[in-house]
Design a protein around this nucleic acid. Structure first.
Length: 201
DNA sequence: GTGCGGATGAACT
DNA sequence: GTTCATCCGCACT
């Protein structure tokens, strides 16, 4: 188990990173309880040029300042007043790129994740979808702006490689407000994986 | 200070 | 397919 190094997150091509993060492993350790799994679905948010991004047009606020930090930090925010969404901040400091993690195949701490989700049995929706996986991993705004090389939340390379034939690119979910940028094929997922949030689209 | 609406999910019909 | 929970970020006054 090797944590992805600081340099990994400095890449300025946020789409390349969104693709490369498929097959990597995201974990949290909260109150000594380790939970996590393999990333199977991501979306790229391309800084100030992307109308779907919180940082579009260079918008800099208390919330978005994390996105401008150096790659290798977490960006967690509350969506719809209910769901926490987890992103990986990428690119060097000053460039607000981020990758939203939308789907996770559960691997570690299954029982703990089931309790957090209030579910009796493993079903696909335990960790399919950004709000669902954040809840399963115990991610909330306390984990915003954390170092992904730290001890609370981190990402590992376990040597999994996703072949091109299993990689699907399509438009992002829930960004209709982004006008023409809503059509960009910047959502990526592993074809056929059970823990992709919406298999067809 | 006020008002609008969102990078969703689950429970409905 | 439709509804709605639930709260803060953000723009504007």
């Amino acid at each position: 188990m090797t944590k992805l190094p600081f340099s990994y997150y400095q890449d300025q091509d946020v789409n390349a990173l969104a693709i490369d993060l498929l097959g990597k492993y995201l974990f949290t350790a909260i109150d000594g309880q380790v939970t996590g799994g393999m990333i199977v679905e991501t979306e790229a948010y391309n800084g100030i040029e992307d109308k779907a991004s919180h940082a579009y047009g260079g918008r800099f606020t208390n919330r978005t300042q994390t996105m401008y930090e150096t790659g290798g930090l977490s960006y967690v925010y509350l969506c719809y007043g209910i769901h926490h969404l987890f992103n990986v901040v990428t690119a060097p400091k000053g460039i607000p790129h981020a990758v939203l993690i939308r789907g996770l195949e559960p691997v570690e701490g299954l029982e703990i994740m089931l309790v957090r989700r209030g579910m009796p049995l493993l079903k696909r929706n335990l960790t399919a979808g950004p709000g669902a996986l954040a809840k399963a991993l115990g991610i909330d705004r306390n984990l915003n702006s954390k170092d992904l090389l730290g001890e609370e939340i981190w990402i590992e390379d376990r040597g999994v490689h996703i072949p091109d034939q299993q990689l699907i690119a399509c438009p992002r979910v829930g960004v209709a407000y982004a006008e023409e940028d809503a059509l960009l094929p910047w959502r990526y997922y592993i074809k056929g994986n059970k823990f992709v949030s919406k298999p067809n689209s």
